[in-house]
Nucleic acid binder design. Structure first.
Length: 660
RNA sequence: GGGCUCAUAGCUCAGUUGGACAGAGCAACGGAUUUCUAAUCCGUAGGUCGUAGGUUCGAGCCCUACUGGGCCUACCA
């Protein structure tokens, strides 16, 4: 039910007499919102105050005038003026009940309308590098992207999801080189993906070590510079002790010196420790300049070298299979999975086109697009002739344009790539993709309890599958705790227990990710998210299970579904009204959540709904109500709550269980 | 050096795009119960929204400066 637009439509003609410009009118209408002050109003219009200058009247007088022309008698039980000029609306319980009954008659869509102007979206999300082990960092893009896809589709838009797999980059050079030099044939035969991931780590470790070694002179130079600067600014500051800016410069320079010192020491320590492993050291010697060798393998692959291409063709299906097993477990599907490799043949033409348009130029042997407002150009072809992800991204956008002609193109990618996307969008607009709205749906970093990017104590990145297992086993420990099961009188089969633990555990992971505003970093705390009270998936899933329990029990006590499915809904007790108001807001909330693609608007709504239901549950007995009419009405309200919770969780990609 | 971003209760985070006394969860404290699954409910306490100015009828939100963290900054993705 679109309550806001209905109420706004009643205000519109009144406000239009003062606000003749459509934009001014639209922004005034947006000042009509669901009220935060539930003790004062259900909805409120904050329209009188901003008009006081224009109309040269006190806001209260303006509010009076609005009120005299406003007819909401069919919807509201009271319309009043409060504070400095707020127009407060209270919905009539009858109208509220009528709307909720309509929603209840439509269990699939809950009377949520389809978009009046449906758009075509292309959404690019998840997009992991297939040869690297998938880790917790990939989950945000995957979970947020999946949820946005589901919500937009539910609202009636056409959404094309594409998993832009990193299946063509430098990491393949790494595993190709590693396969040629470090493979264990037996291990590869038994579990290719595991062996490839081991190989990947071996290569990565050597490159990391060699980089650290070759970086030392640079760090030493930086140290020296910092020392000089610090000494210089100390001298300057001493000469003019009153100058605050100089004193500050000195402090900054000193701090930078400290940092440079620290970094150098850390790097030396790492090298020293790693060098103790004689075998590793020997291996690193044998494969000197590994970074270069890897780039050569990559470049050979890209230029069609038969051996490397054959290896790539052998590796990719294995890698994909591994990744698909994670998607299957998370119940996530994509319409397309054109990886980076799909665009490879198109890249030379992209660069040619950029050169022909004089957008790109040669610089230091590379081909670059220089853009206003940025120091560094966007490089589309390297000195060695290889293409970069920028080039692929341009080719991808052109392909999508031709294939899908989207109105909106969403990229659900880490916020660190913000500048890359700004540049990319700049270039895309310049080559004529101007009618497509390009949007980087960025998200923050997942951190550990220490506030730093999530890693295990040893520093290794935590694998995704292991993390999911941990969540599921954590859920099992709490949900299937024998004490609790005995206390609640529930008897689950082993299979049901497993099903519950899986649903709750995976829900916990997804929910923890979605319930934070996507733009902020968040601290990943497995213990907390698997706990079953507070703002967690389990609390909502539990509320759902309670709704189902009541409905089952009603059936058992002889309330046949057809006795109450069409019974009148009467909202009298305040928990009933509060819950009803919340359920009424479902559609407005979904639309709000997609204004800026924020799934946390949905999680917050569901958490509030679950809390209001718990309150209702506590204070209003359904099966033991004063009258049979009341029981029937409450059964209907419970059922609608049940459907709303389930649909809301479904739109987040989170499942429910009938008992838990 | 340039750019982006963040700073809200002891902790983790919201804050409907500028509206009423700043909210929730966790932790703490005090109540409720032999339950339609207590994994619950009701209540108490906890905040000069990093600092200082500015714009506005009105600022956690917008502008400026400052402080302190994170990230990016030419051939990785």
């Amino acid at each position: 039910m679109r309550v806001l637009s209905l109420i706004r439509s009643r205000f519109a003609p009144i406000l239009a007499t003062w606000l003749t410009e459509p934009e001014a009118l639209a922004s005034a209408l947006e000042r009509i919102v669901a009220s935060r002050e539930s003790h004062l109003a259900d909805y409120q219009a904050n329209v009188a105050m901003p008009l006081q200058k224009k109309l040269e009247k006190p806001p209260l007088a303006i509010a009076e005038e609005i009120l005299s022309k406003l007819d909401l008698s069919d919807i509201c039980s009271s319309v009043s003026i409060a504070g400095q000029g707020y127009v407060n609306l209270r919905l009539s319980p009858e109208w509220l009940a009528k709307c909720l009954m309509e929603a209840h008659l439509d269990p699939e869509r809950l009377a949520v309308g389809l978009a009046a102007n449906p758009k075509t979206y292309v959404i690019d999300f998840s997009s992991p590098n297939v040869a690297k082990p998938m880790h917790v960092g990939h989950i945000r893009s995957t979970v947020i992207g999946d949820s946005v896809t589901k919500i937009l589709r539910f609202l009636g838009h056409s959404v094309i999801s594409d998993n832009h797999l990193g299946d063509w980059g430098t990491q393949f050079g790494m595993i190709i080189y590693g396969y040629k030099n470090f493979r264990d044939d037996v291990a590869f035969g038994q579990a290719p993906v595991l062996e490839l991931s081991r190989i990947y780590r071996v290569v990565q470790k050597i490159i990391g070590f060699q980089d650290a070694v070759s970086n030392i002179p640079k760090l030493e130079l930086a140290m020296e510079r910092a020392e000089e600067k610090s000494a210089e600014s100390k001298f300057k500051s001493a000469a003019a002790p009153q100058d605050k800016k100089l004193a500050k410069d000195f402090a900054t320079a000193f701090k930078q010196l400290d940092e440079a010192n620290d970094e150098l020491a850390k790097s030396k320590k790492y090298i020293e420790e790693t060098s103790r492993d004689a075998e590793f050291l020997e291996c690193s010697k044998q494969h000197s300049q590994l970074g270069q060798r890897v780039l050569k393998e990559t470049s050979k692959l890209h230029s069609g070298d038969a051996e490397n291409l054959k290896l790539w063709e052998a590796f990719v299906p294995n890698c994909k299979e591994e990744i698909h097993s994670v998607y299957k477990r998370l119940n996530i599907q994509f319409d397309h999975e054109f990886g980076e490799s799909y665009y490879h043949d198109l890249l030379p033409a992209v660069v040619e086109d950029l050169l022909a348009r004089s957008l790109a130029v040669q610089s230091d042997g590379a081909i670059c697009v220089f853009l206003d407002g940025y120091d560094a150009p966007m490089i589309v072809r390297k000195q060695d002739g290889a293409f970069l992800y920028s080039t692929t991204d341009i080719a991808t956008a052109i392909f999508r344009e031709r294939e899908f002609a989207p109105d909106v193109s969403l990229y659900v990618v880490d916020h660190r790539q913000g500048e890359h996307f700004q540049k990319l969008f700049d270039v895309l607009r310049k080559i004529g993709l101007s009618h497509t709205e390009l949007k980087h749906v960025e998200f923050g970093t997942v951190c550990g309890k220490d506030g730093k990017p999530y890693k295990t104590r040893s520093g290794a990145v935590v694998g995704l599958n292991a993390m999911l297992d941990e969540a599921v086993s954590g859920a099992w420990d709490v949900v299937c705790n024998p004490d609790r099961l005995q206390g609640s009188g529930l008897a689950f089969s082993e299979a049901e227990k497993r099903q519950i633990a899986e649903t709750v555990g995976l829900g916990a992971i997804k929910y923890a990710d979605l319930c934070h505003n996507r733009t902020s970093n968040y601290i990943f705390d497995m213990e907390k998210m698997v706990q079953l009270h507070g703002n967690t998936a389990a609390y909502i899933q539990y509320s759902y299970a309670r709704t189902r329990s009541i409905l089952r029990k009603a059936q058992a006590e002889g309330f046949e579904t057809n006795q109450w499915q069409l019974a009148p809904l009467v909202l009298s007790a305040s928990p009933e009204v509060n819950l009803g108001l919340q359920l009424l807001r479902f559609e407005d909330m979904l639309n709000q959540s997609m204004v800026d693609y924020l799934p946390n608007v949905v999680t917050e709504y569901l958490f509030d709904t679950a809390k209001l239901f718990s309150s209702f549950y506590d204070q209003c007995s359904v099966l033991d109500a004063e009258t049979p009419e009341s029981t029937r009405s409450r059964l209907r309200l419970t059922d609608l709550t049940s459907l709303t919770l389930r649909k809301g969780l479904e739109l987040l990609g989170i499942g429910v269980v009938e008992r838990m």
